[in-house]
Design a binder for these strands. Structure first.
Length: 568
RNA sequence: UGGGGCGUCGUCAAGUGGCAAGACACAGGAUUUUGGUUCCUGCAUUCGGAGGUUCGAAUCCUCCCGCCCCAGCCA
């Protein structure tokens, strides 16, 4: 057992239970086939990760397959930019569709043939009502709809019209193909749903080959059937569509009849998942783009420094159920720290520096001190860090007038410099007018090299440091939650989610002093800056020689908690 | 107000008639050269509510309450 293992014991959930039963009953010959079917109209986010992990995870677990299929039936909204980013993100998450990359648009010919079959069987008709009229004829939640005046066109006329729709003889909106089901159905989805519409637009894959495009409800079930999907897993809002999913497959010579199961989509506290709302954050420059490290997109999380494994573990832990829920961001962060704690090498960096001069340390002496890269996993080895007379420590690690329970450096107090020496504060130098501390004078105890006192005396704190003449100056970005409220989608009267954006979600520090070894960090490389947080060299802005770090997630902070409590 | 769903700890979530798993969060404590990690301990006499069936109910029945989804030629 190593920390690289996925969590043993997968959590039970209703979909897995269904699959177990199906496999035991030898349904579909014991075969399990799922698919992840994104529409290429936006970037994938952590909510999609839940679905990806579910579909690919189940397939892996039952020795089945999971296809990646682009649901690209709406050329007006879709773009290759998205099909590329989606593939990159699914791969990054750690899943492999092997040679099973499909597009609903690959099935346009077969879909058209199925539509013709429906018409021939009197189960579909060309309707020439306008969009507005169709809505009016649909009725309401409580009143039944009315039949379209075109509902009883002859099969021949329907066939002719549909073919001419395909041939581009009509303008957009002139006609649609509709299923002939039941205008009085209590399920609005079943009131003669639209199957095809005219869209005179280039499609990112089929170009100008088609001017009619199939709707989701017609396309999805048939695509599943064509691919031999056994379990078609989607989110709860498609529950009403299941009746139509089954109707289409039952009324056409479909190769097989997959079963649809719905689960609740993920909601995460302090963020939003709506593509529309995320798009607005990007377009109105509330963030730096889809991959801004504050975004819940997979590319954003990746840039923030999240590991794919932590996201997979998170998806496993939140479970799969049918009730609407809101998962605490703290759980995601817990999964992140859990992973990073094991794999991130430790390093010392001072974010808000204050000078420390060791009065009794030889002027030009430099010692290379051996430091562990990981406190527990010694296999990660050691590194040498330069130590000298003038150092930087964290401003937070010194208090001229220390409060109760504060046990870091203060006048007259002794602390340990990690892996170095015990030092004692003997004087504080301040700017005369302001109270700004410019320098802390200390003495060091040469008998404590490495951080151990031969006489056995203890110190209450160990703090990190960096040698002033050797360290590297760099920018570090401190990220925080994007929203100040737990649920930005459910907000006070008269306000909207933009009113709850956290104005302090990004703080850029430009005068940080890092351990010299960090100079050549490669973009994407992760570290723990000891006692502070996990950081990641930015994928875009960090260059070897000139690193820029993003704070991925802070370490738990017991002192911060105590301090907060004392202030109350 | 039609139809379809859902209600188990602060947050997720197992549980499908035999007497409320687990995780996060939270609170204590131990160990610690990261106030980190790790390790202990505590945390639902009760499952939206009220009745009923049963020796026994979160699980079955009845009624009530609350929340979500559906009236795109979006997915």
């Amino acid at each position: 057992m190593t920390h690289h293992d996925e969590p043993r014991g997968r959590a039970s959930n209703f979909i897995r239970n269904i699959i177990v039963e199906d496999v035991n009953a030898n349904k579909n010959g014991g075969r399990v086939a799922t698919r992840f079917p994104p529409e290429p109209n936006g970037y994938l986010h952590i909510g999609h990760a839940k679905s990806i992990c579910l579909n690919f995870g189940l397939a892996n677990e039952f020795n089945g397959t999971c296809n990646l299929r682009f649901d690209d039936t709406n050329p007006g909204k879709e773009d290759v930019e998205y099909v590329d980013s989606i593939q990159e993100d699914v791969k990054w998450l750690g899943f492999d569709w092997e040679d099973r990359l499909y597009y609903a648009s690959d099935y346009f010919d077969r879909l058209y043939a199925f539509a013709v079959e429906l018409i021939k069987n009197g189960k579909a008709y060309v309707c020439s009502l306008t969009a507005v009229e169709i809505r009016e004829y649909r009725g309401t939640l409580t009143e039944p709809g009315k039949d379209s005046p075109y509902r009883n066109r002859s099969i021949e006329e329907n066939l002719d019209l549909f073919e001419r729709m395909k041939n581009g003889e009509f303008d957009e909106g002139a006609h649609v193909l509709r299923a002939k089901i039941d205008m009085a159905s209590p399920n609005l989805v079943m009131r003669d749903p639209t199957l095809y519409r005219i869209r005179k637009m280039d499609h990112h894959r089929t170009g100008d080959q088609w001017v009619i495009y199939p709707m989701y409800d017609f396309t999805h079930c048939l695509s599943d059937s064509i691919e031999g999907i056994t379990h078609s897993i989607c989110t709860l809002e498609f529950e009403n569509n299941r009746e139509l999913y089954d109707w289409v497959l039952d009324n056409v010579s479909a190769p097989c009849h997959p079963r649809q199961y719905e689960f609740a989509r993920l909601n995460l506290s302090h963020t939003i998942m709506s593509k529309r709302k995320l798009l607005r954050l990007v377009e109105e420059n509330y963030v730096d783009g889809w991959d801004d490290p504050r975004m819940p997109t997979l590319c954003g999380l990746r840039r923030r420094g999240y590991t794919a494994r932590s996201i997979r573990n998170f998806c496993e832990r939140i479970g799969v159920a049918r009730r609407d829920s809101m998962v605490d961001l703290a759980l995601l962060e817990h999964c992140l720290r859990e992973d990073l704690n094991d794999v991130a090498p430790r390093v010392m960096s001072v974010l808000r520096p204050v000078r420390v001069v060791l009065l009794n340390y030889p002027e030009d002496q430099v010692e290379m001190l051996e430091c562990w890269n990981h406190p527990v996993d010694k296999s990660m080895g050691t590194r040498r860090v330069p130590f000298s007379k003038v150092l930087y420590i964290e401003q937070d690690d010194f208090r001229e007038d220390p409060p109760k329970k504060y046990f870091r450096l203060a006048p007259g107090r002794e602390v340990r410099l990690r892996y170095a020496y015990y030092i004692k504060c003997v004087n504080v130098v301040k700017v005369p007018d302001t109270d700004e501390i410019t320098e802390i004078h200390c003495t060091y105890d040469p008998e404590t090299k490495g951080g151990w006192a031969k006489d056995g005396r203890k110190v209450k704190a160990t703090i990190h440091w960096v040698s002033a003449s050797h360290c590297l100056t760099a920018s570090v970005r401190l990220y925080d939650h994007l929203f100040t409220t737990e649920n930005p989608s459910d907000v006070e009267e008269g306000k909207d989610y933009l009113d709850y954006i956290n104005q302090n979600s990004l703080e850029t520090l430009t005068d940080c002093r890092l351990e010299p070894g960090l100079k050549d960090a490669s973009p994407g490389q992760r570290f723990q800056f000891e006692r502070l947080a996990y950081f990641c060299a930015d994928l875009k802005d960090s260059k070897p020689g000139a690193p820029v770090f993003n704070r991925t997630v802070p370490l738990k902070d017991a002192w911060g908690k105590i301090e907060k409590k004392m202030k109350k």
